[in-house]
């Protein structure tokens, strides 16, 4: 059991460190003005998604790190869960923005987007929160399962 707890602690700590790193990268890149693209990862350069969003990702990482020690304790578990919620807000708003962009056909185009245009809107690169999303879901699933067991 202790070993399992240690493993969970390490995983959440690693997730926290990566999240903090992404948050800092977002803030620093947007402070520079221009965004960056590294293969399928995009660090946005604008103050809203990069600056403001970067702070949120940073806080999410800090929540993970502050709660990773002894996740079995409910207050720590709540911090970790909240970190995930922050990631969901970032990723969720990005996905929602993709959906709203993919439907209309554009200023000079038809009413609705073509199939290639629709699917093309979902193409990479993606912001860091999108990559953190699956891990945040796994973390919350573990915490909810733990809560149910308790």
């Amino acid at each position: 059991m202790a070993e399992k707890n240690n493993l969970v602690m390490i995983c959440i700590a690693i997730l926290g460190v990566v999240t903090v790193a992404f948050g800092l990268a977002d803030i620093l890149v947007s402070a520079g003005g221009d965004g960056t693209e590294l293969s399928i990862l995009e660090i946005p350069g604008d103050m809203f998604r990069g600056g403001w969003g970067g702070f949120i990702v940073l806080f999410a990482g800090l929540f993970y790190l502050s709660g990773c020690k002894n996740v079995a304790e409910v207050h720590n578990a709540s911090k970790v869960a909240m970190g995930s919620v922050l990631i969901w807000i970032m990723a969720g708003t990005d996905i929602f923005a993709m959906i709203t962009e993919s439907i209309p056909g554009g200023e000079d185009g038809p009413w609705f987007n073509s199939l290639s245009g629709f699917l093309g809107t979902y193409a990479p690169p993606y912001a860091p929160a999108m990559f953190l999303l699956p891990f945040s879901l796994v973390v919350v699933y573990y915490i909810l399962k733990q809560e149910r067991t308790r």
Binding site: F48, W52, G53, F55, I56, F59, F63, M82, V85, L86, I89, M90, G92, T93, F96, A97, T100, E101, I103, P104
Partner: peptide, 21 residues
């Protein structure tokens, strides 16, 4: 920080739905 995140979500959804879509 949570309030800041909620405000971000609020603003982002507002802009995407009302403006873009």
């Amino acid at each position: 920080p949570i309030a800041i995140a909620v405000l971000y979500g609020f603003w982002s959804v507002f802009g995407s739905f009302a403006g873009t879509l």
